[in-house]
Design a protein around this nucleic acid. Structure first.
Lengths: 266, 266
DNA sequence: CGTGATTTTGATTGGGGTCAAACGAGGTGG
DNA sequence: CCACCTCGTTTGACCCCAATCAAAATCACG
């Protein structure tokens, strides 16, 4: 396992040149919808920017936390918990603009671990300084509330995704979700590279690596995706959506409910 | 289905006598750890207190929301989403001291529905007035952040609970969680009444009502609970915990791994 | 006491887990 | 440059858990 201890900040660099104003993630991050003045103010709150190499931990479970929050500037992360038995439970995948550490505000240790799935750069905030600033800048306060609320909603959606329906539905949902994430960040929505292993996807979705592998095979057979290694091309998004909602067949105008096909045109 | 429309506030009463200072849920609610002065200030922020009868909705999905947050003063709630196909997906059960509506801050419609499982009373806040007050009262701001963060953590735990292990583990976890909830509120931790149906438990855990029924039967057979209808008595919490973690047997020093039974005493 | 909702219980089935082996790609060192 | 090793992925065979369907039983309530 390539688990570098996060205290050994050997491969970490502090990059001071970057700023929020020019950040590609600006639109999805804390400064959503703010003008340049406020954006600069938020920029002032960034304690430092940290670069991590793939496989490096940003923080680890039960590590004492010094009231830090992290915004992902670039790259992707995985958050997970360890069970008492030492098994890994993936709690989420995270892309640029998302905050890490929000679930530990007011606590003294981290609730889970966060590891970089790709080379990445994060902006480190001090929660207390951020809260202080919000106290003096009402719009920032609002933004922070929205951020927390949005994260809560995201988590709820994840819960629903995980529980609902069969393996193929979950995985179709997962692919669509990834696609939307890339699309929202200006990349191609139908061609992307997964930064995580089958095992990790399975762990996240409550399935096994073998099942994920078989599902990819199925989906390829149905012609809705192309896949080689971790590279995914979505060929038929509509079909994926149908799979995700549990409506495998093209579903005419009035899907169910009406018994007689003659009624379809009524 | 007893789904009363929430706009027909026929059975709602506004009870003005109650206050935060004397609220039995005070210790688990927003004013956690605050002195009486602040508590009174929070009390001032309560727009009104609303009483609901069992089965009544506090709000419904897609209903336009007028920036309300609700704190549960007494009683229990269920929150759920409706799928496009009209199926109900339980997102959570909620007890006194918890806030409802936190996931919709900054939105204009409710993301889900909330229905009272028992007769209940809630305190209605205006998010904007609350945020305003927090702007002038730093400790309140902190409390609100903690509240949101705690809710986020709770949601994460739920996600883990739902995905992990087999039906018996999930349900054992569910019972223990309920037990802890009652214990934290000063009731007996091992004797309580479930306010929800088997169907609703199953829906929450990603199982079916039939499975829940069978599990209750199993657990009774193993002697770790007693159950008649919705009344539960936990007889052997340790055994429940073992079931929850997937260690059905009392687990000697070195549980598995060793093939030879002769080694058990080594 | 009748009616409908909830719960229990049984029989059956299939989806996905588990185990294991084979395969492929990437990295390392000789 | 190739042998070797390791890790991730694929694929197959088998089996078990929990869903499903259905019917009976129990309870709640008018």
């Amino acid at each position: 396992m390539n688990r570098l201890t996060s205290s050994s900040s050997l491969s970490r660099h502090a990059a001071q040149a970057a700023s929020c104003g020019t950040c590609p993630a600006r639109a999805h991050c804390l400064p959503t919808g703010m003008n340049d003045t406020y954006c600069a103010a938020i920029d002032q709150l960034v304690e430092r920017r940290v670069q991590l190499v793939r496989g490096e931990h940003l923080y680890q479970m039960n590590e004492p936390l010094s009231d830090h929050l992290y915004a992902i500037r670039s790259g992707q992360f995985k958050t997970y918990h360890l069970t008492p038995e030492g098994e890994q439970r993936v709690t989420g995948f995270h892309m640029s603009g998302e905050f890490l550490g929000l679930d530990a505000i007011g606590l003294h240790v981290h609730r889970g671990s966060a590891v970089a799935l790709t080379n990445a750069e994060v902006c480190e905030f001090s929660y207390h300084r951020l809260a202080d600033a919000a106290q003096r800048m009402e719009p920032l306060s609002q933004l922070f509330h929205n951020l927390l609320s949005k994260e809560l909603a995201r988590q709820q959606d994840t819960t629903l995704l995980l529980r609902n329906g069969h393996a193929d539905q979950k995985f179709a949902n997962f692919l669509l979700r990834m696609s939307r994430c890339y699309a929202a960040r200006g990349s191609a929505p139908n061609l992307f590279q997964l930064p995580m292993s089958r095992q990790e996807i399975g762990d996240f979705l409550g399935l096994t690596a073998a099942t994920i592998s078989r599902l990819i095979c199925n989906f390829k057979g149905q012609g809705c995706i192309k896949a080689v290694r971790r590279n995914i091309i979505i060929l038929d998004q509509a079909m994926l959506t149908r799979i995700a909602t549990g409506t495998p067949h093209p579903a005419p105008a009035v899907p169910a409910r009406a018994a007689s096909p003659a009624l379809q045109l009524a």
